[in-house]
């Protein structure tokens, strides 16, 4: 475990806590894409199947449980919670996320480390996570008013994989030059998708104006 990875995990955890805070404190999920949350739940379930079979460390197992339960809780809130579900922008959150699931699955069948159930699920979760933010970014462009917490949620979510890229560079040079093409390429794509969001977020912060993504 190196500092970059720990920073990445904490940033990721923080993004989830910010979203939970927003939903719990404001009892509203306006501006939040339920489709992206559903995709993240699939990502975590598909990736953390080894939770019960391979014990890496207490930290690793605890974080897996936290990510799976928090993403499930957020989806549950947005679907079932009587107050929260009413604030969901159903007609704005229209991205056909099934396409993302299908494409990631096909890609995982072709590009994986081993053609085994676990490795195909793992590769699927890596590819799906790279594009899972798309429904959320589309929703942000549509909904004019991006509230601060939702903006911060997306910011931390984008930053976490950037820290992971630094972690991969660090590990490449310190742990023998093993190449991990799948997470590297997917991680770069994932972080690149946030590039314009980071840019407009920075502008809104610099000019001290509300964050607005151009349509």
């Amino acid at each position: 475990m190196n500092a970059f990875r720990f920073l990445g995990d904490m940033t990721h955890l923080f993004s989830v806590l910010v979203l939970l805070l927003k939903i719990y404190a404001t009892k509203s999920c306006s501006g939040v894409s339920r489709k992206t949350q559903e995709l993240y739940m699939v990502v975590f379930v598909a990736r953390y199947m080894d939770l019960f079979t391979d014990y890496i460390s207490l930290y690793n197992s605890v974080m897996k449980v936290v990510f799976i339960t928090s993403s499930a809780a957020i989806v549950w809130c947005m679907r079932r919670h009587p107050q929260v579900r009413r604030t969901y922008d159903r007609d704005q959150d229209t991205f056909r996320h099934v396409v993302l699931v299908a494409a990631s699955f096909v890609l995982a069948l072709i590009f994986n480390e081993r053609f085994t159930f676990r490795e195909i699920c793992w590769a699927f979760s890596i590819y799906l996570e790279a594009v899972a933010i798309l429904p959320q970014l589309v929703l942000l462009q549509r909904s004019r008013n991006v509230d601060n917490l939702t903006g911060q949620y997306v910011l931390f979510l984008g930053a976490y994989r950037a820290f992971y890229i630094l972690n991969w560079i660090y590990r490449y040079f310190t742990e023998g030059h093993t190449s991990r093409w799948i997470p590297w390429i997917a991680g770069l794509v994932q972080t690149a998708l946030y590039a314009d969001f980071f840019y407009y977020y920075f502008l809104s912060w610099k000019n001290n104006v509300k964050l607005e993504l151009p349509a």
Binding site: R5, D9, H12, R47, D50, D54, I56, N60, M63, K64, F67, E113, R114, E119, W122, Y164, N167, T178, P183
Partner: peptide
């Protein structure tokens, strides 16, 4: 065969 590198990251 080489040990399948466990995915030790989140």
């Amino acid at each position: 065969i080489d040990k399948v590198r466990a995915h030790d990251e989140l």
